[in-house]
Each structure stands twice: as structure tokens, then as C-alpha cells.
């Protein structure tokens, strides 16, 4: 991809970000929202986040990790455990990385 194409692609990606993030803010009038859609909003954002996170943690190159000896799995479990206990996001990141880095760098998991 030459630099003109790359620039064009990136400008398009900027439009994609704008369109996605402002999708329902763009119309001048409020769009009528059926009650069913309104209630679906309770579940959809969490589902989208989970759908991004879980494959990052449990999959490698499109397949489930075949072993428990993986730094991501153990660190994610430790981080989730910490969050369930203390409910702090800073602690969740710190605990997760404290488990992740020694396993990744020390044991090569």
C-alpha cells in the first residue's frame, strides 16, 4: 500500500470512527426507539466488550489455546478475581500485569 492509499484509508477510518461513535447523534430529530431496542441496550454494550476481550484471552491464531500454561489466561483470571473482590480498575490492571509479566518474561508462557 503506497502512502497515498494509506492516507486515504486512514481518512476513511476516521470517518468510520465518527460515524460509529456519533451514529444516533447525527440525525437532527430523535429517532423513534421501540421499547424492545431500549431494553436491548442494557445487554448490548457489555456483550460487545466481552466479544472483543474473550478471544484476546483464550484464543491464539483463531483457535482456543490448548494449554493452561498461558500467561494471558492466568493473568486474566487473577485480574477478574481481584476486580470481584475489590472492584478497583487500577488494582485489576496492576494485579493482572504482576501475574502476566513474570509468566511471560520468566517462563516464556
Amino acid at each position: 500500500m503506497d502512502s497515498t492509499d494509506a492516507t486515504l484509508t486512514i481518512l476513511g477510518l476516521g470517518v468510520v470512527t465518527l460515524l460509529a461513535r456519533s451514529f444516533f447523534l447525527l440525525p437532527q430529530r430523535e429517532l423513534p426507539m421501540p421499547p424492545l431496542v431500549r431494553r436491548a441496550l442494557k445487554y448490548a454494550p457489555l456483550a460487545a466488550l466481552v466479544a472483543i476481550i474473550v478471544p484476546e484471552v483464550v484464543m491464539t491464531r483463531g483457535a482456543l489455546i490448548p494449554t493452561w500454561a498461558d500467561a494471558r489466561l492466568i493473568a486474566a483470571l487473577a485480574a477478574a478475581g481481584w476486580f470481584a473482590w475489590r472492584r478497583g480498575i487500577l488494582g485489576t490492571i496492576a494485579v493482572g500485569m504482576l501475574v502476566f509479566l513474570p509468566l511471560r518474561l520468566g517462563l516464556g508462557w
Binding site: 476481550i53 484476546e56 486474566a76 472492584r87 478497583g88 480498575i89
Partner: peptide, 9 residues
């Protein structure tokens, strides 16, 4: 990813 895990929680 860890930050997003906390966020989901």
C-alpha cells in the same frame, strides 16, 4: 485487555 476486563466487570 485487563482494563477492559475491569470495565466489563
Amino acid at each position: 485487555t485487563l482494563a477492559l476486563i475491569g470495565l466489563s466487570g
